[in-house]
Amino acid sequence: MRAVVTVTGKDRTGIIAKVSNFLWEKGANIEDISQTILGEYFAMIMIVDISGANTELAQLAAECSEMGKQIGMSIYMQHEDIFNAMHNV
């Protein structure tokens, strides 16, 4: 099962380190990362495989958002199906 992790907010050091470390601890495997910085605005989108994760997706998503708050970023983890459904005919 794959999920999409979206990290947005004001750019600062250590964002990728913090997020990828968190995902590693949870047993999620990062398959793809893309990242852009527009001025001071940071946006990163990751595709992660959570088949081996030790937590259910809903719980993991909540923990992800909570971790985001601690580092001042907005973080979402969502099942990839929602994007496939909404953006493909």
Binding site: T6, T8, I45, F83, M86, H87, N88
Partner: peptide
Amino acid sequence: MFSNNDVLETIA
């Protein structure tokens, strides 16, 4: 497959 813009649009 969806694009990065699709992801950001959904979140917005």
